[in-house]
Amino acid sequence: MHELSLMEALRDLALQQAEAEGAVRIAVMTLRVGSLAGVEIEALRFAFAAVMADTIAAAAVLRIEVVPAVCRCGGCGRRFAALDGVCECPSCGAISRELLQGRELQLTSLEIA
């Protein structure tokens, strides 16, 4: 149910921003979600619909950009995709944990009217 509390946080953030702009309606919300953020996209969508009901975002569309995990090698500095969450460098074989991206849970934009 972690997705539900994340969507509640999204609702509070989005309504606050939109109301500060005098919006009467939120049409689209765009999120960036890292592939290692530990959330299920389907569960996010399900929770989204539930928490936005009866707000100015009730009819809003949820757009999700998935951010693939990328590591930087602690040995040679190369950047590479870490699809399974393991930062094993394809060049030198070193294993590190410097994750440059892949944990995002961000609201990036709102389309309001």
Binding site: L13, Q17, L105
Partner: peptide, 10 residues
């Protein structure tokens, strides 16, 4: 209709 760039962590 307009777009607000926000970029805030949930």
């Amino acid at each position: 209709p307009r777009t607000l760039a926000v970029t805030t962590s949930l």
